[in-house]
Structures are given as structure tokens and as C-alpha cells.
Design a binder for these strands. Structure first.
Lengths: 221, 221
DNA sequence: CAGGCGCTGTCAGCGAATTGTCAGCTTGAT
DNA sequence: ATCAAGCTGACAATTCGCTGACAGCGCCTG
């Protein structure tokens, strides 16, 4: 799961980012409205956490412009001023949920989970592919009912492939979702990761189409 | 996805073309305004990348004339002079997005993706030619509903011919698309590739017009 | 603070799929 | 009939992806 965090206060951004990263999400941060606009308009995120009252561009108009451009990702709005009028305006603008500051990180996580579940699984919090089961709520994976201990990166990988089942995912896309914009990684890092994952899940789980990418589920020609 | 790149500087054109091709688009290049006008007016592109300041015909009037002729494909304008007045004029003329030079290729790709997504809305981009179906999103090809295992190069070849159906494509153009500027390859490499592809797809699929080139679909003189 | 441990990136080597090359053959045009 | 363009099968070279080992890093524990 790939998240965009829009927050101008660097200190707060770092805290929230740490919490979300710790929960297994790939988090990218935008510090001002312009950057947020560009990222949200051009990249694919599974969810946006948006703080109102940004420098550069008002958070509310940012949201409106995304929606006007047909961007439908769920947006969780953080606001210090939880007035009723603002809530209405925000929902009009296309916000999916509100969280008044200050808040507990627990609650942030719960709402993030709820929004993602609502948008990706049509209510279903588990993905089943053959003998493999991915519980996106508990972030656990089991094979033939036997729970597997996956590392955070491994989980993000199965999760992404699971959400895009029956589709060939190019390595570049996986890199982007796993590592964000960080281009420092060797291409081999991904291959090593996949090798470890296959060892844990059993060879049947992740398929390769040489020259194209990886997939889970039915995609064999 | 089929793109037209209008750029007079051959060196820059080659670079951009390579990047876009690498991202999976079928790219054609026009080096001057007249050629661009002709191609943009007669062929169907999913997006045009237009550099202003061309010889032969001003990019801005080119754009205006396309729009006047009812061509609605998205246009991404590249400009060295990102002045406010010019932006306004460009948007008036029908540009969908601006990218000031110099730019990172990453950013170009992101904007191209965004424009295409906005215009087609992730529509199922499948090309059907007789018994042959090309799913450009899943990068899969099937004959009479039976999926075929194609190698990356083979796929790029059918994809290109599919995008240019009913048109004779000269071997040189195919070479350029498949291999870029890399002239090291023997001319026979392409013929060998086509032979392998025909074997997989059935002989009916790719036609030869001796002395002119290859084609898919109908091509009676 | 030292030591241990789990996670992940890097490296090097291997095997296999993909693709280029070659030589000879077929086909179509003049 | 002749010749060049194009086709094809075999083979070689190259590239791609996989794997096991190792090392650096951060985190936890004692």
C-alpha cells in the first residue's frame, strides 16, 4: 500500500510518516501544496493523508482540483478546526474521512485501514489466491491455513501483487511501490526479495514472465 | 498507446523517444512543423508531446490548427520559456499540460501517464485484428482466444504493427522502434524475429509486401 | 555499551530463455 | 531465366533472472 502524506510541519510529518511506515505502508511526503498537487495528480496512491492549511496552496482547493481531474483515491483530512461548516465543505470537496487534531496515532491507523479496506476490497479484507490467504487487516499471510512470518517488505510485496492479481506487474512498478522514489537500490534487491518470499510461500505463489514482470494468480499464457 | 513526438532537435528527440519507448509506448517522431501537422491530422494518437519553437511552422499555430480541425487528442507542450503569458496562450490554444525545459524524464513520464489516464480513463486498450487480440495493458496476445507466450521483443513487434494496422510499415521503421539507434544489428535479425512470430501466431497474421514492408490487417493496394 | 539477531542490500556465479548470426533455400519481380 | 528480397532452421552469444553467501544496519536485550 502506497500512501501520500501532505503535511507542511516537518516534525509532525516525520512522526506520522514513522507511524504509517511502521504499520507497513510505503509513505511519501509532500511538504507544500504544489508538490502535493503534482504527486497526487501524476502518481498512484492507495490513500492520501491531507493536512489542511498548507502554504502554497490551500488543502481544500488541492482536494477539489484532484477530484476535478478524476483522481478518486481515498483522502483522509487532518484538521485542527473541526467546525461543522468545514466538514461539510470538505465532504463536498471529496474528502472520505475527517480526523480532528490532536489525535491518537491508533485512531489514525484505524481510519487509514478502514478507508483502504473500503476502497480496494469491496468489503473483503482478505484476498485468497489458491492456497494463499492474505489478511489485509491483520497484515498476515497464510498458506494452506498455516500462518507465515513475513517481514514488512515481503508483506508489502505479496500485498501489492495480491491486489493486482492476474496481472503482470513490471519490476519497475514494484520497485516504485516498494521503495518510492529511492533509486539507489540495485535491481537485484527486488529479485532477492522475491526469492526469499517464494521460499516462504512455496514455489507456486509468484510467477515470472521473463522480460515483462511478476504476477500472482492466473496469468499463464 | 501511440504517441507522437514533435521535436526538431534530433538528439533530444532520440532521447525522449527512447524514454517513452522504454515505458511501453509506441512512439513516432516528427522533426518539423509540416510533418507534425500532417501526422497529427491524419493519424490517431493517444497523446502528442509538442515542443514549441519549431522550424517550418510555429508549434502554437500547429496546435490551434489541429483543434480547429477537430483533433482532440491530449497535447503536452514542452517549452523553454515558461512565461505566464505563454502558458495562458497555450491553454487557450488547447494544450492540456505544460512542462518547462529542462525537465527530468521521470517528470515527463509522470505527466504523460497522467494525461493518458485522464483522457482514456484506463479503458481496456485491446486491439482486435481478425482472430488476433492484443491486450496492451496486460501485454498479452491471444489467437482465437488462446493466449500465446510471446517474448518481449515479439510482443513489441505485434504491438507496433497492431497500432499501425492496415498500414505497410517499412522494415527501417520497425528496426528503429525495436532497437532504437542501435545500428549494430544485422538486417536479418528482424526477419528472423518475424519468422518466429509467424510461427506462433499462425501464418495469416503478418503480411509482407515485398520491397515495402510488413503489415497486419487489410492492405490491398 | 556490547553482543546478538533479524532484515535487507550487494555480490558473484549459474542456468536458461531470448535474440543475433550465418548459410542455404524459396519466392516473386523483371 | 536471373537475381535480389525475404524466409527458415541451426547454432552461438548475450541477457535476464535465480540463488546462496555475506555484510551492513538498526533494534532489542542483557
Amino acid at each position: 500500500m502506497r500512501l501520500l502524506l501532505v503535511e507542511d510541519d516537518a516534525r509532525i510529518a516525520a512522526d506520522i510518516s514513522a507511524v504509517l511506515t511502521g504499520a507497513g505502508y510505503a509513505v511519501e511526503t509532500a511538504g507544500d501544496g504544489k508538490e502535493a498537487w503534482f504527486l497526487g495528480d501524476t502518481e498512484d496512491y492507495d490513500l492520501v493523508v491531507l493536512d489542511l492549511g498548507l502554504p502554497g496552496m490551500d488543502g481544500m482547493s488541492l482536494l477539489k482540483r484532484w477530484r476535478a481531474n478524476g483522481r478518486h483515491m481515498p483522502v483522509l483530512v487532518l484538521t485542527a478546526r473541526g467546525s461543522w461548516a468545514e466538514r461539510v465543505e470538505g465532504i463536498d470537496a471529496g474528502a472520505d474521512d475527517y480526523l480532528p487534531k490532536p489525535f491518537q496515532f491508533e485512531e489514525l491507523l484505524a481510519r487509514v485501514r478502514a478507508l483502504i479496506r473500503r476502497s480496494v476490497g469491496y468489503g473483503a479484507a482478505t484476498i485468497v489466491i489458491g492456497p494463499l490467504t492474505i489478511d489485509t487487516r491483520a497484515m498476515r499471510v497464510s498458506v494452506n491455513g498455516v500462518p507465515q512470518a513475513l517481514t514488512p517488505l515481503e508483506y508489502r510485496l505479496v500485498s501489492y501483487l495480491g491486489h493486482h492479481r492476474d496481472r503482470i506487474v513490471p519490476p519497475a512498478e514494484l520497485q516504485e511501490h516498494l521503495y518510492g522514489d529511492d533509486f539507489s537500490r540495485d535491481a537485484n534487491a527486488l529479485e532477492a526479495l522475491i526469492a526469499r518470499l517464494r521460499k516462504k510461500l512455496g514455489a507456486v505463489s509468484i510467477g515470472t514472465r521473463r522480460g515483462f514482470g511478476y504476477y500472482m494468480g492466473e496469468s499463464e499464457p
